[in-house]
Design a binder for these strands. Sequence first.
DNA 1: AGACATCTTT
Length: 565
Amino acid sequence: MITTRCRIGGGGGGGVVVVRLFSSFSETPLATEPPAAAAGGGGGVEIVDRDLEDTARSVADTIRTQPRWEKTLLSRYSHSHLFHPRCADLVLRRSLSNPLLSFRYFLFLSSSSSSFSTTTSSSSSLLLQSLLDSKAWGPAMHLLRSTKCPTDPHARNAALSASLRAGRIDLFWQLYQNLPPLEPDHTTAGHLVRALCLDGKPLDAYRLIRSSGGGSLLPDVCSFNILVSGLSKIKKFGLVSEILHMMVSSGRTPNILTYTPVLHGLCCCGMTDEALRVFNQLKLRGHDPDVVAYTAVIGGLCKMGRMEEAWELWSEMIGRGIVPGRKSYFVIIDGYCKSGNLERAEEVYKEMSLKYGECSVGCNIMIAGLCLHGKVREAIDVATSMRRKGIEYDVVTYNTLIQGLCKDGKTAEALVFYRGLVGSGLQPTASTYAPLITSLCSKGNLTGTTELVKDMEARGLEPLPRTADCILLGLCKADRAEEGLEWLVEMLKTKRRPQPETLNELVEFFSSVGRVDDALLVLNALFEMSYSLEKSVCNLLVDKLCSRGNRVLSEQVVSQILLTN
DNA sequence: AGACATCTTT
């Protein structure tokens, strides 16, 4: 028996569940279909099919048209008919267009008659399927757990699959834990891999695959692809290569969709040359890269500013008859913007607009490019023209403009956009506040800063690390050291570590203004985070301590510094 | 059937 432990996510703490994919090969009973007349007929009374059909039709009409039909049914129909499996089956099927009604009928049957059990797994599977299709998860779960409802492995797999498709991993694990063990097979393995990857635990999925021992218990290519994608996102390329070998040796031949996330992952962590190598290998081995693969590699080159090579690949892509999509255009336009070739960016932007029309993301890219190169006025012009064309601003539009204006020293104007953002009903993000707070702090405007910090808190937003540092420095230097130190304590409590440079600057500041006690306090925090103290700051502090005649303390500090550096 | 690519965060 092979089990793999994995954590289940969803709500907060998430317990540990044993993935029991390969727990037992034995007795998961397949649902069997007993003879139709076995139950309900008692006493040798033979019920004619025709009668049952009439009853079923009438019952189905009743439950569809009457609000409270439970009592009516019990008094109007003979129990031997009502609870006859064939009749139950027919009513359930007739009501499928209203899955919840059908489910209510199922509940009625199972609670009114202790001997009732749907005898064909097909009608309960149909009911389950329609409940899943209408995303009625609660009833679907109830049905699956009901002992009165035989559901075959296929139906259970359908439920697992439906919960994954709907992105409800929480439900997936509930189902998985509460259902009787499934016959271990490659379908279930695939579902588990997908669920673990969606849960952000590709390593657990990898361990599961490793422990399965290979062969027929390995999932299909598509699930493998999801695993490769998950491992690529966390940059575990060694494991990716192991999985690729496993795929080849088990006959799950990797395809272009297997490799694209790898290319993307490599490009994202600066390994663009490695991506290029893999990409060329793929082409040599006869794979036809699609638009997504091309876009990934072109994006990698763009991120490194290698625009000539990017354009070369772009042309190659066009030459192969591949039509660049919207996102391909975004990538290359952004590349030209970032590298400062704004004219070229505009040319390609126009080409994209002719093909796909304009949208906020495209405008955002141009706005960011203009801001980056000090053309904030032009950026605002682009934004204004968006409004004219009926393209709505999104949070990124606002954030980009706010950042651009702040960098240009136009904090007041940036605040106008901030108010516009809030007024438009969009939710600001931590990135909205970062440049505003930095600007206000550097101007010594602590009133404005604390106001924005309060706004953030009211929205449940945490300042970005740099922003938090900025607030810390701002408060301390504006003669509000008490609040500043409180802020520092709060940061440490919530495990948000200030940068080493920030703490050095603080020690330096407190020393220089003669607040030696505060300097020592910060120094302590600095040591506790095993940061090191810069030499110049150290000299300044020791100097201050000595000049105060505090020889003992200064020697202690020096020896402490020697110890930690 | 299912998966892969975009803009803000200095």
